[in-house]
Design a protein around this nucleic acid. Structure first.
Length: 190
DNA sequence: TACGGGATCCACT
DNA sequence: GTGGATCCCGTAT
């Protein structure tokens, strides 16, 4: 079953943990490209120094984070990659969850083509390439039919640890706000 | 209008 | 383990 708006309208940490084992579906030209979510990171703005919404600053890039829950926040990084986030909490509470890794399920042949034979979905930039997710999906409604998340599996054991690539975030860089499925072979790093 | 850096990935050593 | 790719956006001028 497709996750409802209410699923996303809760504690971001809780949603980040519960997204593990769910199935992310991207519909492209009538085909389903999908994977099980195996790794996530929570960004708890405005207080979180690692978050784009730190300090409550609204910009053109991060505006979706300040909107209602259940929407996709997609941004470009390092000039050539995209990252997919899921917005949580009500309008005005700029929190989101970065999807960092998937275990491929449907449309693997298409993903291989988009990834040019390289590893498919074990990293935020890679999975966006595999599922053809780019800026045009920013602000996409996750309760719609283009990009959505649905029930799939229940992880046996979840690991919580520190987030990746946020050394500048001072006291927030040590928060254990990254979650992954223990021993899953598709996580981006331990 | 200019400048600097980034929630990454890849090739190379 | 290291450095380069590559460009948009945030911030300051």
């Amino acid at each position: 079953m497709k996750l409802s708006r209410e699923f996303y309208n809760r504690s971001t940490i809780k949603v980040a943990r519960e997204l593990l084992g769910k199935k992310l579906v991207r519909v492209l030209d009538g085909r389903k490209l999908s994977g099980m979510i195996v790794e996530t990171e929570a960004y708890i703005g405005p207080r979180d120094k690692a978050s784009h919404s730190y300090g409550g600053r609204i910009t053109k890039r991060n505006a979706v984070m300040f909107g209602p829950p259940g929407y996709a926040y997609v941004y470009q990084i390092y000039g050539m990659y995209f990252c997919l986030n899921v917005v949580t909490r009500p309008r005005g509470k700029p929190e989101a969850i970065l999807i960092r890794a998937l275990e491929p399920i449907d449309g693997v042949d298409v993903m291989r083509k988009f990834r040019n034979g390289r590893t498919l979905t074990n990293g935020p930039g890679r999975l966006c390439q595999a599922l053809h997710i780019d800026k045009t999906l920013n602000d996409e409604d996750l309760t719609g039919d283009v990009l959505y998340i649905e029930d799939y599996a229940t992880p046996k054991r979840i690991v919580s640890t520190t987030r990746v690539g946020i050394d500048y975030a001072e006291e927030y860089k040590d928060k254990r706000w990254r979650f992954y499925i223990y021993k899953n072979r598709f996580i981006s790093r331990k």
